[in-house]
Design a protein around this nucleic acid. Sequence first.
DNA 1: TTGTATGCGTTATCAC
DNA 2: GTGATAACGCATACAA
Lengths: 330, 330
Amino acid sequence: MSRPTIAGVARAAGVSVASVSRVLNGLPATEEMIERVQRAVDALGYVPDSRARSLKVGRTFQLTLAVADVGNPVYVTMMRAVEEVVSAAGYRLVVTTTGPDVVDEVALVRGMARGYADGLLISPIRVDEDLVKSIRECEVPVVVAGNVPAKAGVDTVRANSPKGMLLAVDHLVAKGRRRIAFLNGPADTVPGAARSKGFTEALKAHELQPAAVAEATDFTFAAGRAAAPDLLAAGGVFDALICANDLLAVGLMHELAAAGLEVPRDVAVVGMDDSELAEQSFPPLTSVNLGSAERGRRAAELLLARIEDNERAPRRIVVQPSLSIRRSTP
Amino acid sequence: MSRPTIAGVARAAGVSVASVSRVLNGLPATEEMIERVQRAVDALGYVPDSRARSLKVGRTFQLTLAVADVGNPVYVTMMRAVEEVVSAAGYRLVVTTTGPDVVDEVALVRGMARGYADGLLISPIRVDEDLVKSIRECEVPVVVAGNVPAKAGVDTVRANSPKGMLLAVDHLVAKGRRRIAFLNGPADTVPGAARSKGFTEALKAHELQPAAVAEATDFTFAAGRAAAPDLLAAGGVFDALICANDLLAVGLMHELAAAGLEVPRDVAVVGMDDSELAEQSFPPLTSVNLGSAERGRRAAELLLARIEDNERAPRRIVVQPSLSIRRSTP
DNA sequence: TTGTATGCGTTATCAC
DNA sequence: GTGATAACGCATACAA
């Protein structure tokens, strides 16, 4: 029992394929024609082949969002925002995951052959020449939620990490904490580099020295835990701690508790991303909101606009951060 | 600058389209032919159109995984497992999200017209006649990670909630807790119904009465918090609490803490799913592992097998649970 | 309004 | 081994 095609429907209804196509696409037709076609469609259980359709019309009405780690709750925030925008515009959103390596990211962009989707939204952790090149050469429009060089000539929506860091430090200092430590993610990543720089600048603005600095191997919960010894070896010289994302913060808080340190009494902890995890953590985590929802929304809008008009000049949007204060800081 | 097609490559290389296609697909050709085609491909930056290709060969080499809520960490566990299996088999995995309503799920299965993917993996929260019907009529193979009636005649991989409940109750009773309360998710969902039944049976097996029972409006963190008053109004008559999933458990633990109750001293808490959140929660959450990773793996294998042979009899696999004991229970 | 015929970009079947 | 050509399933310009 082979699947029915439009030709089969036409035969069953005793009309031409063109008429079937017209009825299915809501083009003008007589009541009777609509009736006959509809009956044949129902009887055969016909459903159009989206490949053939999109091959003909040149669009798939699908958009792809590629994230590095589905386990990172910051991406679910972004995903929800993107989904809302693109589905309102009549597109289906499909999500694929790339992992932390640039090569995978490049492979994805390269492999995003024409036909898979009408546009691509990526949020790469690491960026190199190859990635920029593959984006420029990509068959479909690409927008980056993150930071790539301006000369890449691509639409970007990025966070303002330095400003976010400053908000965190301001808050901690206002609460009387001056011995501030920092747990970064991998420094060879874009967010890692940005947050490291931001931390240094923010402390300088307050004429403070870092109390301790450590670098996790990844932006994950496990990496946060694993980095704890490095930080604790510094010998309790810090009374506040900023982490490069919420997962690291929560991982580290577990080890802080294990070491007998109480949050926020002994150590105030600030995360970044203000993901759902910040709210779910205990104590609830004060976190720098880097606007992941807004970044997702803006990025999706940019992508839709570029699909509409591929000649427009690339835009580079920066979303401003805010601080969500919860109980992990005094 | 229009996108190059195989015809353009053929023209540039001075050969036929058939030869280009052959070289690209690794079919026998002379060294020189391969050389010429390759050069033209590189020069033009040609990348094949996957629609046209799959229209011709009849396969997309894509599989779709549809989950109800991307924010539920149990799905990331499942997603990782599925991804691993299908990518090893040469398929790309795309993830789409449906929301908690059956109608959306039905729309997804219906809309999964031939051409979007070669197979569909769904994990529906609610199931009705329409959904079963749409699955049976679906153009591509569907496997369900969850529970649908046997007469649906579809491959399924499901958890054993009652057995899981029993593990939880066994554990609590062994630790001396007998006044056990239960926070369920919506009872009109498949997992909600199964867990409710399982809870009742498990208590009966120990000749215990439920200390309190409440029903959250959703399987989310927020719903877990919101359900707290209902449970706490019961007046501290329980010394243990089982929640229908980890998100509910964590949400509720926040309210327990707010009410001055200490976990596990005053109330032992057990979640279900054993998701990443269970480990990240504080205190780390004892949770019933319903085998989400294994369910994902087995479901993916079933889907691949069915794509291979659509005539094989439907299989119904049940994955056995285990208990991950952490510090939320004594 | 309806039907006929062409082409979207690719692979596969033939001849050569 | 290579090249012309017919499909794959659909939408649409054009003719009726």
